[in-house]
Design a protein around this nucleic acid. Structure first.
Lengths: 219, 219, 219, 219
DNA sequence: CATGAATGAGCTTTCATTCAT
DNA sequence: CATGAATGAAAGCTCATTCAT
């Protein structure tokens, strides 16, 4: 006898089931982002997440190990989506300075589209080393590694000054942009985060000693 | 005739009492920094703080309103000490770019001297908007305002490019340095945060379009 | 189309749920009466109540706001039941003296049936002005108001002497009966409180200047 | 060698010391009455008592075993003073009905003179069986016994009806007066408790079947 | 004797997690 | 699979009592 249902009909049914499962998973994560953004991870109760997701408290535990895992999955999923969406765009140009400009733009655009998500990232991600252990380290690492490699290539290409070690430069660049996001999240004023992109790009590129470029296509 | 106990001996006794009180207050705050750094504010129990401070749980409540106040007082006291120590040094030079260089240096030196304190600042201060309300906002504000004014003066003096609004530039600069501290706090490697100063200064000054200055004596 | 789950089966299920909820609420209140009677409200711990009710500590907070509310609900519920049960009986006769006799009888019977409840009433209700505020005032008020109106009617009917203001007379009458209950609660001897009724009635009616009536059927 | 200081000077010094000791004891008890009346025994902190008495917290424990004992001593002392003051007055007449009238008057006068003390008596004495054990029982007992004996004598003298057992009558009488005091303590209105005496006497005497007496000089 | 800072046991309450339905 | 009532461990805080000064 088969273990696992492998008839055609079973497969179809399994597909539908999987889809519904994934949808509910998403709903729960969305609820978690909402609840965590509103009260902070620690203050938010699992029942707040459940209410925001429109499911029963217990249901959450059918999809996630515990409350901590909710936060970890939010981080991972967001990072995945960020790079899924951005990789082709960022690396669609050759020059490292242009890549960096696009990465900065994407960073601001991506988080600027979802303030709740940004709030969780800026506030709770910083707090997580104490209970998420390596998860939060991994999140930063990926971003810093990409940045570092980009800067290193720029230095090799001669578009960036090479008197700043790439790893450190990556932290400095990331921190600069990151603070822009934090300020936006904490601000009561209502402006579009994306509108900060030109200033941020100018700042970052200049910091690495890149020659100024005009943003649009030139003759 | 004197009202109250103001004889020489009484005054001496009161002085001694005040001193002991202050010492214990300090010990408790030091214990709090230790405990919060180790487990994070939320995970740390009041009894952890008490143990680290070498006092009974209840004693803490003779000196502080509640657990939250411990965190708020750590923030306030640190900021006070930072500026107390740094104001004369930072503003001991005229040129805004030199001032900025000194501020960056001070920032790294100050937090680099006490890793536990830095951990609390980098981790728990970010998390506090949700429960400390304006306290954490005030902390950031002071720093960002000083930076902004400094950058503005530099633009007026002509040492900084003026194509970046001072308020935004301040955030970017602060964020860059801040991330250096965060990385150091989270890192397992053991290096001196202060050693990052030259790289950080070069990065920051260049980002604002300042002409390179040699740090030491030149040929 | 129906909004909400109002199918016959759902309604039945909801009804069953409500019933179980009410039952558990009752069990908790009964446990509270037991625990409060045994140790007094202040000495009784919430966990004592939980144990007596056969539920977990936390369960109590699903049904009641806090410990204070337990006491308030005991008082309210008891008063409600007292008048629910007694109103028809007491006011089933016209003459104010007979009404008063019945009220005295009911008072003793009602509390005499449940010594624990009586203990809570005699001991903790007196202590509650300090933390239950108006709840305890309301409890007394109702009883004293009914008594006062009854006495006033009796004076108008000419069955009671009118040289004592009804409001004061009400207090005196209530206090007299009340002390009988208190003595019974504190007594180690085992007698039926109800057996005090004839003496109490004779005392109270005479105090108001009522002509003696024979209690039973006369020749 | 003598144990105990028995020289004349020593004795004088001891006398002075004892007096100061007694004075401080009194001050503490007065502070306790104030604090207990204000917040209720359980809510009042030992430090409230200390503050009201103008002594340090620890000093209280040089004069009293613990917080409970403060309450017990308040009760005992009050009872002692009541009878000290009242015995001659109450028993200065022969007729039991007159004695009873005087006792009622004294009861109202005595507590009416000190609302704080009355508050402690009416509220906390009722709550004390749970932690004062026999102390509170003793307090009531003395009063009820005197009343009972008085009523019994009245029945023998023929001034009281003998169809109510003296012990029960004593409870009823005591409760009636007691409730008058409670109402006064809990009332927000400002009237003199003593002014209730005529009504109370009329009520009580009539309840025992006493022939009316005119209170003042008759024609 | 008097002080009052310090103690720490003990309380109420919260909420992540479980599991019978 | 989904529910949500129930659980009970855990933690912040209070305050009666002690004891070094």
């Amino acid at each position: 006898m088969d273990i696992g249902s492998t008839s055609a009909r079973d497969a179809a049914r399994d597909g539908a089931r999987d889809r519904r499962r994934d949808e509910k998973r998403e709903r729960i994560l969305a609820g978690a982002i909402e609840a965590f953004a509103a009260h902070g991870f620690h203050r938010a109760r699992v029942s707040d997440v459940a209410k925001a997701a429109g499911v029963a408290d217990g249901t959450i535990y059918l999809y996630f190990e515990n409350k901590d895992e909710l936060l970890a999955r939010i981080f991972e999923q967001t990072l995945d989506r960020f790079w899924e969406r951005g990789e082709a765009y960022v690396y669609g140009v050759e020059a490292a300075d242009e890549q960096l400009g696009r990465l900065v733009e994407l960073h601001l655009k991506f988080l600027g589209e979802n303030r709740n998500l940004a709030a969780v990232f800026q506030v709770d991600l910083r707090h997580s080393p104490h209970f998420l252990g390596d998860v939060s380290r991994r999140i930063f690492r990926r971003h810093l590694d990409e940045l570092g490699a980009m800067i290193e290539r720029g230095q090799e290409q001669g578009v960036f000054a090479d008197d700043v070690p790439p790893a450190e430069a990556a932290k400095l660049v990331f921190g600069a942009i990151d603070q822009l996001v934090t300020s936006w999240v904490l601000s009561r004023r209502n402006y579009r985060l994306e509108s900060m992109a030109p200033v941020a790009q100018r700042f970052v590129l200049r910091s690495l000693g890149a020659e100024p470029r005009s943003d649009g296509p030139e003759s």
